[in-house]
């Protein structure tokens, strides 16, 4: 059975029951199937390698300890990403509420005239870079983004999750998710444009 098939089978009621009873084999299968995704998400959320290792380990240990409370209403992957998000929030202790004022909102407002059309249209940016340089640039551009914004972006773009699943994992409404994605994408786009035009 491929890893994708294994992950799909995690949604079966029989498998959910095995998780709920804390069956070791079932819990280990989940650890094995999602370890890479959870670690990747922790790194993408802005943690350094050591922090990401700690948070990943704590996420799975919490999952193992609280498996009896898993109700199976969402996929086990959603449950895991929810634990991960709370661990990152604890690690960072700087989670802002999704609706707080964000400086990117003001930047975006200034780009449009009162008629709603572009006042400062987007510019073509030269971003011909090596992967390593792109990684560093994205890190510096997203340094002020909240872990919640970064995770929303990562779950959507890298893990390909749908809105409902991301909302469940992060504990936000669909509207809040839209705000998170709007801010993180514009923050990154603005920063890359500035960098690419000025280089």
């Amino acid at each position: 059975m491929s890893l994708d098939q294994t992950r799909e089978s995690f949604a079966d009621a029989a498998f959910v029951a095995r998780i709920q009873t804390g069956e070791e084999e079932a819990l280990l299968a989940v650890v094995h199937a999602y370890l890479d995704q959870i670690f990747r998400a922790a790194r993408g959320a802005g943690l350094n390698q050591e922090q990401a290792e700690d948070v990943t380990q704590n996420t799975f240990l919490t999952f193992i300890q609280t498996a009896g409370r898993f109700e199976g209403r969402s996929h086990v992957r959603t449950w895991l990403f929810g634990i991960l998000y709370r661990k990152i929030a604890e690690e960072r202790r700087q989670v802002k509420k999704a609706q707080q004022i964000d400086d990117i909102d003001e930047t975006m407002e200034q780009r449009f005239g009162t008629n709603g059309f572009w006042l400062q249209p987007p510019r073509e940016a030269n971003l011909d870079l090596e992967d390593e340089e792109i990684r560093d640039l994205i890190e510096s551009c997203l340094a002020t983004a909240t872990p919640r914004q970064r995770l929303a972006f990562l779950l959507h773009e890298v893990e390909g999750m749908d809105s409902r699943e991301i909302c469940n994992a992060l504990g936000v409404s669909v509207t809040n998710l839209g705000v998170l994605l709007y801010r993180v994408r514009n923050r990154l786009r603005e920063c890359l444009e500035k960098w690419g035009v000025e280089r």
Binding site: R40, R43, G44, W118, P121, P122, E124, A125, L127, D131, I134, R135, I138, F153, L154, E157, V158, R185, L188, R189, L192, E193
Partner: peptide, 20 residues
Amino acid sequence: HCRRYAAQLKNLGCMVRKVW
């Protein structure tokens, strides 16, 4: 302008998939 904006947003997705 909006076409360029849309293309740049799409490119952001490609970039993060590559590095993350």
